[in-house]
């Protein structure tokens, strides 16, 4: 019995020896600076050559083709239309200084809410096989839910870690609500290197997102607050972990974040508390 190419519903006529899997091993240089890891920021663009961001390895935008009216991805020289994407990129660079940084601009081409453009940009980033995608955006529009869910699941199995911001207000939005992404909210601690696991998801991790100094337009820096800025810290952590162990699957990566969270105690006989209802 066979289905679509590449899909397996059950194992027939093969045994364990036919399915060798090479588990992750530490990189030869034991890297932890993000070297060799491709991180893509899906946002308002990134200002090129900002001193706190450094060189960009690629920059694209989602635009509407004037003839077909389809959304297409084009190389982009606009930079950043707001400052938000540059801020996220700066936090990633600070956390994983040697990672490769890419930008997909999904805002600022014309006025548009998050939705079509976000999905087009995110899908493209997943198709390119970036190791980490930072998405400090979400959409509240439920008509995009199914499509976003499928993209997030594809990314999960293809080892593209989508690190997604929880909304800043208590509303339902996506894709951070999905278990196949790594979702991030902000904590209020001053420690700039503190991340915590949330024993009561859907937001799975908390990271520094209050009063964060970030690069902004014109080579400047500002201070800002919000889940948007906690997320790239975790995206940077992912890049650091993956540079040391490049073959990790997304579930192993999430596990590594969990095990390194300051509130998770390992080996002390104390298990992280589980949510009670």
């Amino acid at each position: 019995m066979s289905g679509p190419a590449g899909l397996t519903w059950s194992l027939r006529g093969r045994a364990a020896a036919d399915l060798p899997v090479l588990a992750d091993t530490a990189a030869p240089d034991g890297g932890s600076t993000g070297k060799g890891v491709r991180v893509c920021v899906v946002d308002s663009g990134i200002e090129p050559d900002h001193p706190l961001v450094g060189p960009l390895d690629g920059s694209w935008a989602v635009v509407k083709d004037p003839t077909t009216r389809e959304l297409v991805i084009r190389p982009d020289r606009t930079g950043d239309t707001c400052g938000h994407g540059t801020a996220c990129a700066g936090i990633i660079r600070r956390t994983a200084p040697d990672c490769e940084l890419y930008s997909v601009r999904v805002l600022g081409e014309r006025f548009t809410g998050t939705g079509d453009m976000l999905i087009a940009g995110l899908r493209w980033a997943v198709e390119q096989g970036f190791d980490v995608v930072n998405l400090s955006l979400s959409t509240t529009r439920t008509r995009f839910l199914e499509e976003l869910h499928a993209i997030a699941d594809d990314a999960f199995f293809a080892r593209t870690a989508i690190v997604a911001s929880a909304h800043n207000t208590p509303v339902e939005s996506y894709p951070w609500r999905f278990s196949s992404v790594i979702s991030v909210g902000s904590h209020q601690e001053d420690d700039p290197a503190l991340h915590l696991y949330n024993p009561a998801p859907p937001v799975e991790f908390f990271a520094p997102g209050q009063n964060v100094r970030v690069p902004w337009l014109g080579g400047a820096t500002i201070r800002t607050t919000g889940n948007s800025f906690a997320t790239p810290y975790v995206a940077g952590l992912c890049a650091r972990i993956l540079s040391g162990r490049p073959r990790l699957t997304t579930f192993q990566l999430k596990s590594a974040l969990y095990l390194t969270a300051a509130n998770v105690q390992v080996g002390g006989g104390t298990r992280p508390s589980t949510p009670t209802t």
Partner: peptide, 27 residues
């Protein structure tokens, strides 16, 4: 409405707080 902080807020549906803009000539 396609750019700037107000543009990002309108497009993303998220609030934003920024400080120390004084040194930012582009802004």
């Amino acid at each position: 409405a396609g750019s700037g902080i107000a543009g990002w807020v309108a497009a993303s549906g998220e609030p934003m707080v920024v400080d120390d803009l004084g040194a930012n000539r582009t802004f």
